[in-house]
């Protein structure tokens, strides 16, 4: 029982990072119709930046906060390159984000090298459901809950959120009422970047990060987002948690080498189950 509870909790912790990465994808897709393949890059950049800031003597909290802000700014840059030129199609922008993700590898290797890095999270351990887990998992869960609730409220309850939704629903009409469509797209990239950065900052203390960790994050984040049809944050959260937990169980009871396959099989299963439906064909 204790072992199972341990897998469930650690899996949910990693699942939160998938959910945050996936939610970043969802925010960007909802507003711009661009699938941002550089989404994992935000997490890696933020995590590696924290290692540098901590080494430079900045305290915990400030270092993580600055790294998330940096990820948001990098999000704006990615957005500018991907959708800044008027008339760029979402498909073309997708390829641009893929290219930027590869470019980021080069930058990261030059600055931080190719070895995995990590930093300390919340110290100590706590007993949950009869099993001892690192206290940091509670921080991951708590911050994820607060941030995703905040994002949901932003979309549902504020005029800015409505304008973001309106931009996605009908860009022409958005321009007619005076909404700056490009600015909304860049804002979505900023939020997506910050969510990705947060995923990296939160998960690195329990899972080392290196320049190519973005692949696992983006594959899992994308799988989670696919469950929500790339547009529904609630289902993305559920998908992320489910993936994290199933991977932890597979890793614990079978072998850790099957973990990525779990995400891919999950994504394929969801896609095949929905293949006949028009909205998914449009989304993918």
């Amino acid at each position: 029982m204790g072992e199972l509870a341990g897998y469930l909790i650690t899996g949910a912790g990693i699942g939160c990072a998938y959910a945050l990465t996936g939610s970043g994808l969802v925010v960007i897709y909802r507003v711009t119709r661009v699938v941002n393949f550089a989404q994992g890059t935000f997490a890696v950049l933020a995590a590696l930046t924290v290692t540098t800031l901590l080494t430079a003597g900045l305290p915990h909290g400030l270092a993580e906060g600055l790294a998330v802000v940096l990820a948001g700014l990098v999000g704006v840059l990615v957005g500018l390159v991907a959708i800044g030129k008027p008339g760029t199609t979402p498909q073309a922008a997708l390829i641009v984000t893929l290219g930027l993700g590869v470019l980021a590898y080069a930058v990261e290797i030059v600055i931080w090298g190719d070895q995995p890095r990590s930093f300390a999270g919340v110290p100590g351990s706590v007993t949950v459901l009869g099993t001892r887990i690192q206290a940091h998992y509670l921080l991951i869960a708590g911050v994820t809950a607060v941030v995703l609730t905040g994002a949901a409220l932003l979309f549902a309850r504020t005029d800015l959120g409505r304008a973001l939704t309106a931009t996605a629903a009908d860009p022409y009409a958005a321009r007619v009422v005076g909404i700056n469509v490009l600015r909304m797209g860049l804002l979505a990239f900023a939020v997506g970047g910050a969510l990705g950065g947060l995923a990296g900052v939160l998960v690195t203390p329990v899972q080392q990060v290196s320049f190519d960790s973005d692949v696992a994050l983006v594959v899992n984040g994308f799988s989670a987002a696919i469950l929500g049809n790339l547009t529904r944050p609630g289902l993305t959260l559920a998908g992320g948690l489910l993936l994290g937990i199933v991977q932890a169980l597979v890793g614990g009871y079978l072998s850790t080498s099957y973990q990525t396959e779990v995400a891919l099989i999950f994504m394929l299963a969801v896609l095949i189950a929905r293949a006949g439906r028009r909205d998914v064909v449009e989304a993918v």
Binding site: A166, A169, D170, A173, V177
Partner: peptide
């Protein structure tokens, strides 16, 4: 017409005054 289909009538109206 170009309304914002996923938004409610009231939300559509509010965005009319976005500027």
């Amino acid at each position: 017409r170009h309304l914002f289909a996923p938004l409610t009538v009231d939300e559509n109206l509010r965005l009319g005054a976005w500027r």
